[in-house]
Design a protein around this nucleic acid. Structure first.
Lengths: 134, 134
DNA sequence: CTTGACCTTCCCGTGACGGGAACCCTTATG
DNA sequence: CATAAGGGTTCCCGTCACGGGAAGGTCAAG
């Protein structure tokens, strides 16, 4: 199977597939003409990678997960550990974004948004008072 | 004021300050020895930039916000527009992360996490069934 | 005079690809 | 048979917002 067909089947761009080969995530065979030749197994791995990435796992995590996926004598604890760590990362990011969101929402609310220059958003960015009552 | 002092005052790394000059956000003067010479105004701008970045604004947004900050005949509506758009971006990211979080939490919960190979996390990544009841 | 703490520019690396150039291979059609 | 279209290939640069580190100039103190 050529890269175009593999791309269609897995939903990944051909560029991404080539990149995954470059960094050693997959090792598709090569035809006599130099074209990559993807097996069903290759496609399964690509699908796996695509879904892992869609769940937000880094390439490093994907590499580890793929290794566990291929290791039938794995311990599910190893998989769970990776997923849990990733979950913590995501929760941390959410907390950061929620913090930004509430601050921004407050600022946006407090700004008249008219043609006058007075703007509490600029005031906060300049001075840096996150005070609530002062 | 040298870059080290400016860095201390603004809380920004010297590297970042040089970068901001390189991309034209600030234009500090130069001494006879070639050293950058930061005025109070430069420091104000740097503080502004640091706080805008801390609120998650992109460099492009920061450039626009800084221009508005310096333009005393600005309309607060222009500032508000940028902040609102950024707020939407943040909310979108939060929604994506929340989606990942709930999926991951469900998967982590369903994984025994012992020394056996059976792992619903790997099953989902391989197959892609997000089904609830099937 | 030397030491050490600054400062300067320059270049490479990050993560995970995307865009595009320059070129090769295969197949269909006039 | 020539050619054009639509694959494929490698290679290199750009993204975003810096960080690390090298090689070298400058300055204040002892």
């Amino acid at each position: 199977m050529n890269i175009g067909d593999a791309a269609t089947r897995t939903g990944l761009p051909a560029k991404t597939i080539r990149y995954y080969e470059e960094i050693g995530l997959i090792r598709p065979a090569r035809g006599a003409n130099g074209y990559r030749d993807f097996s069903d197994t290759d496609c399964h791995k690509l699908t796996f990678l695509g879904r892992a990435r869609a769940h937000g796992f880094s390439i490093g995590d994907c590499r580890a997960l793929l290794a566990l996926y291929e290791d039938t004598s794995r311990a599910s604890a190893d998989v769970k550990r990776i997923a849990q760590a990733h979950l913590v990362t995501i929760q941390t990011k959410i907390a950061e974004l929620e913090e930004m969101k509430s601050t921004l929402a407050r600022l946006v609310d407090s700004c008249a948004g008219d043609d006058r220059p007075d703007c509490p958003i600029l005031v906060e960015l300049a001075a840096g008072s996150t005070d609530q009552k002062t």
